[in-house]
Design a protein around this nucleic acid. Structure first.
Length: 199
DNA sequence: ATAGCGATGAGCT
DNA sequence: GCTCATCGCTATA
């Protein structure tokens, strides 16, 4: 239990952090049920100058306002009217950088995850894909703005170390509207895990 | 007030 | 590879 401190989230390079989070452990305790898993897939979204980011050009609305807080809080929003997508806000105040958690490899609480997902078996779809991960960990809009140094949802160092060669860098998924920024190499995944949304 | 649409996932071909 | 469920956010009026 080495919970990442506030200072970790205030680092300024969101692309570095998205990669650095691969292999760390994310934990939620919701309604007394503890779930945890290794982060296997992330994407970086950089505040002002990234056309794919909800805070592009400083867009400030009821939905995006939390992104401008000091790093270390959660940004959760509803996508396609169905899926809650869970993001980590990073950097110092007013930068609006975010990291989308797209997949984890489950460790603790697999039974409760299966129950939440309506699954009989443990397979890669249990916790891979941003909507599926959030549902398995019971993260939804009630966690909008949640403090990641608190005791509901947080990230820890893992015991296992990651060889840099296990991490694949690729374009982000589902952002074709972002013109040239759709090709930025800001998605990272752990090639040695089967819990990855897309290769 | 409201039209348009999305950082997805499941199921079927 | 294709379709579509489903609804809150955003922009525009």
């Amino acid at each position: 239990m080495n919970k990442l401190p506030q200072s970790y989230y205030e680092k300024q390079d969101v692309v570095f952090l998205a990669r650095d989070l691969i292999g760390k452990t994310i934990v939620s305790i919701i309604d007394g049920n503890r779930t945890s898993g290794i982060i296997t897939e992330t994407e970086a979204y950089r505040g002002y100058d990234d056309k794919a980011c909800h805070a592009h050009l400083g867009r400030f609305t009821d939905r995006t306002k939390i992104m401008y807080e000091t790093g270390g809080v959660a940004y959760v929003y509803l996508c396609y009217g169905i899926h809650h997508l869970f993001n980590i806000i990073t950097n110092t105040q007013d930068n609006a950088d975010a990291i989308l958690i797209r997949a984890v490899e489950p460790i603790d609480g697999i039974d409760i995850m299966k129950q939440r997902r309506g699954k009989e078996k443990l397979d890669k779809t249990l916790t891979s894909g941003p909507g599926n991960f959030s549902k398995a960990f019971a993260l939804d809009k009630s966690h909008y703005g949640a403090d990641l140094t608190g005791d509901t949802v947080w990230i820890e160092e893992s015991n296992k170390s990651i060889d840099p060669e296990e991490i694949i860098i690729s374009k982000r998924i589902g952002i074709d509207y972002a013109d040239e920024d759709k090709d930025l190499p800001w998605r990272f995944y752990l090639n040695t895990s089967k819990f990855v949304s897309k290769r």
